[in-house]
Structure formats: structure tokens, C-alpha cells
Design a protein around this nucleic acid. Structure first.
Lengths: 313, 313
DNA sequence: AGTCAGACTTGAGGATTATTCAAGATGGAT
DNA sequence: ATCCATCTTGAATAATCCTCAAGTCTGACT
């Protein structure tokens, strides 16, 4: 016996702890017969009787108890060490998504994926944090950005579109602005600059912006509080518009510099569950793009297809 | 993955430590191809790349190094735990024998056994200590005694015979005693009492014995030193008689109360190597008994078959 | 630049081990 | 005596392990 009969030892330990072949077999998803054979062969191989068999189960012999004591904890530790990897097995997958995208776009669609893969365990973490894939917690992430992050693969899902939105409170008692009048309203500075908007749709930038926020969530909250008008991302603002907390001012839209991507490490290529999710996600994104809904934002009163700003100088 | 792929982990650990598939394969007595396959399947199963392959060997990835760190020591410990059992494998056997019997009876015969089993590893420990088989160090023992020890099986090998012996120094300048005169000589008290001797062969016990020794080795040494005449066991004294350090006084022999036995625990029944040894030993002992040599002690001058004392009142 | 050797990979097929199935034995409870 | 739970065992099947053969890749050497 050069190499330790590790699998048989694991079977032995389970049987020794249960003191019942039937229960141990259940735990190991084997038949009682398989365990009986394995234990018998282990006894022959080690030259030692490990169990006293009885009509109501079995008891370890003194040598069996000693062996259990010596190897049991180590087998436990090895099993424990594999737990992080086990969680990454092909039918378990963990995805991180921006909360806004999760709630506005992914969650309404996810039941279709889950229905197609009833054996999968899907874990969704809503976070705006940048994902460090090195720790192995996530198989992929849905992120908004340029798509050229280092060390990971980023695959375009769909573009983002921007349009001015404001809270009903800000609009109260005032007439809706026309495009060229927008510069006279209090504007909140977002990630994507207003200048490109005015350049495309006319009007003059204000002399100053009421406030500037680098954080999209804070910008969003400020808009909802009526602090001013902001250029809202369609996917971010959609739930707020649909709930009436924000109002879309114009049917016009401007494409954002950044887009939504599926981001993942190289190792996830070999993760079958992740591959299934990835294929499904790209199909859903393609359908989303093809339907034109990617840049659609329901207006407060009507849901006609908006006229896009033409590309040009 | 319900059960940890323990064999593959063991292969992985060996390869990770060697950082060389070729060397690791040698250590595990496998082909490089077998290791390559095993490691690749483990990587697929765990969903993780464990090695960076290079032209001069391989290096663990960060995940591989972590896995090695987590499971390596435990696999070592399990291997260590099996060591006592591994030493008991079928072709390795450990026997304890009385030094006197070992040198006078067993060693002259053992080469025949070893020649018949060139693949065996035979370990002989010469000791008069009672063997505690619970610690697993020995598979069997050759012991002299009543043969009814608790908790072990004792199988008779051959009887022991007693006869008076003395050192040449004691005899110097004195005529050899006749049987009926023996009571007048300085006698050393051994385990088996002189009374039975006198009862069987006539003569009177001395009023006192010069000395009494409970230990056979000490009794033997005292005899060699010329302290007196002792009733020597044929097997114990044979080498001393053959080397001229002791002299057999009479051809008469008396059967000892005790006999030589092969003693072993129940678990050795399943030890193939031990079974082979046991069968061989019984055959040698039977031949020894049948040849009448069991009670033969070469006389100082002639090797005629000695006249045995008749059994009777 | 070409050759060689060391190291590892991969597919195919055979060998070995693991597992299931079916039939049976054993002993406690009723 | 019967029933049930538990385990055993032989035979057959399934799965895993391993070897063989052919191949790739890279560094060292000429």
C-alpha cells in the first residue's frame, strides 16, 4: 500500500461516526452494499478489523476508533478546504450587479433563466463596488463603464442613454421647459457632461451648475429631492420614473459614453453554469437592443417611441 | 462534487511540492501521463487552474498554492496515521522470539523461509519480554510457557526437555557423578524443580540448593561460571554445550512442564505474510519433533540417542 | 537556423476499482 | 413463527485510473 486509500478512509469515517451503514450510505449517496464492500476491502488492505457488526448497526473496534480519531479530523479539514471551491461548482453561480441594473433590468428577466435551469443555484449580490475576482467569490459581474478593465473580460450587453429628468416637486407651478430653455433651469452636473447635450440639442449651458456629484446614487437622490434637473441614465432612472418620483422632460435621448457590460475572470470560461448564464444574458441583451427598448424611457403621459438625436458634428 | 476527490488531491499535492510532474510521477509510481490526466481532471472538477505549466516544470498558481497549503498537511497526517498499519501489510512481518530460541533453533532454519519468500520483509526481535500485541508492533511471538495465555492464540511448536549440565570448570579434577550421587553436588535451583528429577531418576535432593534463580538467563550464566549444576533446557543450553562451555552430565532427560509456542493475536489470522510464516514454522517444528531432535542434546563425547525416562509413578 | 532533450499534454484503450443489484444471513421485536 | 432493520456477499455493470503512443513546446547546444 503505497498511497493511502483515502476514499475508503472517508467512507470508513462516515460509517464510524454514524455507527450505522444505512445512515452513512445515505449521507454519501451510495448504497449500503457499496459501503459494506468498501469497508471490507479497507479492512483487508489495512489488515485490521475496524468494526464489530451488530443487528442494530456497527461499532468501531479499538483499532477502528483509533483510526477514526487519527484521520477523521484531517478528512474534515480537507473537506472544509474545498468548500470555497465547491461553492464554485458548475451549477452554483454568483453574480454581482449594480443595484439599479439589477432591479430595473435583470430581476424582471431572471425568472426565465432560473426556470430554464432548475438545478442551478443562483446568487445575486447587488453592489456598486468594483469586483475583485481573485477572492473567488463571484463568477461574473454586471458593470457600467468603458469596458476596458484590466485583467478581466468585458462583453458589451447594451448601451446606456441619457435624458433630462426632474422631480415633480421641482416642476410644480412652473411650465415645462422647452429644449432651448433648459439652460435656465437649475442643473445638476453628472458623470456625462451637459455640454454634449446642449451641443446636440441646442440651448446654452448655465453659467454655473447648482451642484456637482461624482457619485451616481447621490446625484440620483439629489434629483429626486428636487435640487435640480439631471441627465439621467435610462436604466438607472427607469424605476423612479415608473413610480412617479421622477419625470422625463423630453423625448430626446443622448447616448452615454459608457455602456453596460458583463465582466468576468478567465477562470469562469470553464464554469459551465456561468457559461449558461452568459449565453442567456447575451441573448436577453440582444433582444433588448433589437426591441429598441434599450433607449426607451416611458414618458410620464405617453409611451410613444422617442425621437433619437441624430449623430453628427 | 459531494465527496472530496481525495486521490486526485494527493496527486496534486505531490506534484505541487515537486513542481515537476516527472519527479512526482516517480514518487507515486505512476506515469507522467497519469498525473497529467489526474491534475487536469481535478482542475476541471474544482473549476480552478492549479498550475502554470512551463518547459522546466510547473508552478502552483495562487489558488494552487492556497489549496496546497490547506490540504497538504492533512494528507501528510493521514499518511502518517496509516504508517503503523502500513508496516503490517501482508509481505512485512514482525516476530518476537526468545533470544535463546532465536539463536539455537530459529536462525539456523530461517534462511529457508526467507528463500521461499524473497518478497517478504522479515523483522525479528529477540526479547524475553511478554509481547503486548495491542500496540501492533508484532505479528507473532515465539514464547516458552504453559500456552494458555489470555487474549491470544498459542500453538504448540515443540516440547522442552531438561537434563543436568555443568561447566567444565566445576567438573575439573572430579569424577563425573552417577545419577544417584547427584544430590551431593552443588545444585542450582531452576524454574522446574529438581524434585521431579530425583523422583524420576532416583537419588536424594540436597539439603539445600547453592542458589536459586528465577531468571533463566541468570541461571544459565551462573552455570557457565561453575557455580553449580543446573537442569538445563535443551534448546537454551544447546549452543553452550556445542561450544564446550557446558557439559551434559547424563543421557537421561525429563520433559519440562512448559513448551515452546507460537503466540499471536486474532488479527494476524488475516495477515497473509504471517500465515505463510506460521505454516512454515509448524512444518519445521513437526519435522523437528519427528526427528526426535527436540529432546536430543549432543553429549560431550557421543551423539547416541539418549534413553528417555519412562513415565510412571 | 537546426537539432536535441526535457517536460508536459492528449486521445484511445485496457486495467482496476467502485457501485449497484439481487439474494441472503442475522438478530431483535412482536 | 413472523416481520423488519441492518449488514454481507457474489456477480455484473459503471466509473475511474492508468498506460501507451504520438504529439507540442521551450531552452540549450551546435
Amino acid at each position: 500500500m503505497d498511497r493511502a486509500p483515502l476514499n475508503a478512509l472517508q467512507v470508513f469515517v462516515t460509517a464510524a461516526r454514524a455507527q450505522n451503514m444505512t445512515r452513512a450510505a445515505e449521507r454519501l449517496h451510495l448504497t449500503v452494499s457499496a459501503l459494506s464492500h468498501q469497508v471490507r476491502l479497507l479492512e483487508q488492505r489495512l489488515g485490521v478489523t475496524l468494526f464489530v457488526r451488530g443487528p442494530r448497526g456497527l461499532k468501531p473496534t479499538a483499532e477502528g476508533a483509533m483510526l477514526l480519531q487519527r484521520v477523521g479530523a484531517h478528512l474534515d479539514a480537507i473537506d472544509e478546504a474545498l468548500q470555497p471551491l465547491r461553492a464554485r461548482r458548475d451549477c452554483v453561480l454568483s453574480i454581482s450587479a449594480l443595484p439599479s441594473l439589477a432591479s430595473s433590468w435583470l430581476m424582471p428577466r431572471l425568472p426565465r433563466f432560473v426556470a430554464q435551469h432548475p438545478d442551478f443555484e443562483f446568487n445575486l449580490d447587488s453592489s456598486i463596488e468594483r469586483v475583485d475576482f481573485a477572492d473567488g467569490r463571484f463568477d461574473g459581474a454586471l458593470r457600467y463603464g468603458p469596458g476596458n478593465w484590466d485583467g478581466v473580460t468585458a462583453e458589451l450587453l447594451f448601451e446606456e442613454w441619457l435624458t433630462p429628468v426632474a422631480s415633480p416637486a421641482l416642476l410644480a407651478g412652473r411650465a415645462r421647459p422647452r429644449l432651448e430653455e433648459l439652460g435656465e433651469w437649475p442643473l445638476l452636473s453628472p458623470d456625462d457632461p451637459w455640454p454634449r447635450w446642449f451641443e446636440q440639442f441646442g440651448g446654452k449651458e448655465p453659467k454655473r451648475y447648482v451642484a456637482t456629484f461624482s457619485d451616481s446614487d447621490t446625484l440620483q437622490r439629489a434629483t429626486v429631492e428636487g435640487m435640480g434637473v439631471s441627465l439621467g441614465r435610462a436604466t438607472l432612472m427607469r424605476p423612479l420614473v415608473e413610480s412617479g418620483r421622477l419625470v422625463v422632460l423630453f423625448p430626446e435621448r443622448m447616448k452615454a459614453r459608457y455602456a453596460h457590460h458583463l465582466v468576468y475572470p478567465e477562470r469562469s470560461i470553464r464554469h459551465k453554469g456561468f457559461q449558461a448564464f452568459r449565453e442567456w444574458l447575451h441573448a436577453e441583451a440582444a433582444a433588448f437592443r433589437d426591441s429598441g427598448a434599450a433607449d426607451a424611457m416611458p414618458l410620464a403621459a405617453a409611451a410613444t417611441r422617442p425621437k433619437r438625436a441624430k449623430r453628427g458634428a
